[in-house]
């Protein structure tokens, strides 16, 4: 199978001298739920943010499908890559519907955006996506009226209407209570399975990672420590990952 995301010898060094990623080589595949584990500051976020160009590698190359991730390609890359954030990153003063339609912006030109004249097909997509995350009746409520779990569902719906090939989720449940976390994880995995998207998750809860992940990648100080099926993963490997 062709990988949907490829890291070729990627190193990311920040101006303050921190090396977030150190010669990382990884491939991610469609329809696969991959979970990235690691202590705080291990480079998990950078790994995800480099895929859609929110950060650029210092050396090495990243590609999404057949597209190299370069500033000139950002729009084309982001069209294929949805992203869910820890803090939801929605526009609080817009309606749920408008936030979901943001996922269609890569397909739409300046005039459609200016006058909010999205075609009926976009609204249908958005309604379906909202129904899929269980928010069908909240389409015209303002996002800042919703609870955290509901906001994260809106963010997921926004990635669904992008009709991309991969969904990145950067600590998607770190701001949510345990019961809501399970709901959100169920929705994310269900959507990845239904659409055949690749799903790449950063998590800091090992139990959630083992429950949902089909592949677990451990990162520490920017270096991949292990990359295996959860069943093959020993407790000593996880303990070593989090050891100082």
């Amino acid at each position: 199978m062709q990988p949907i995301v490829r890291f070729g010898n990627v190193t990311k060094r920040f101006p303050n001298g921190v090396t977030a990623l150190n010669e990382v080589n990884l491939e991610f595949f469609p329809g696969q739920v991959a979970v990235v584990l690691g202590p705080s500051g291990a480079g998990k976020s950078t790994l995800l943010r480099i895929i859609n160009g929110l950060e650029s590698p210092t050396t090495g190359t990243v590609s999404v499908g057949d597209l190299a991730v370069t500033p000139a390609n950002h729009r084309a890359v982001r069209k294929r890559v949805g992203m869910v954030f820890q803090q939801f990153n929605l526009v609080p003063r817009l309606s749920v519907m408008a936030n979901v339609l943001c996922g269609r912006l890569a397909y739409r030109n300046i005039w459609t955006s200016l006058f909010f004249t999205f075609p009926a097909s976009d609204f249908e997509l958005a309604e379906k996506a909202l129904a899929a995350v269980g928010l069908g009746d909240r389409a015209w409520d303002r996002v800042d009226k919703l609870s955290g779990g509901q906001q994260q569902r809106v963010a997921i719906a926004r990635t669904v209407v992008q009709q991309g090939a991969v969904i990145l989720a950067d600590e998607p449940v770190a701001s949510l209570d345990p019961a809501t976390s399970i709901e959100i994880m169920d929705i994310l995995v269900k959507i990845a399975k239904e659409t055949g998207c690749g799903l790449i998750l950063n998590l800091h809860q090992v139990d959630l990672a083992l429950k949902y992940g089909e592949r677990i990648i451990g990162i520490k100080r920017g270096v991949v420590q292990f990359d295996s099926k959860p069943s093959d993963l020993g407790e000593d490997q996880i303990a070593a990952l989090y050891a100082a």
Partner: peptide, 16 residues
Amino acid sequence: EGTYEGVRACGATRFQ
């Protein structure tokens, strides 16, 4: 910044 980033990550142009 997150508000901008969420929309930017959808592939929005500066104008969008």
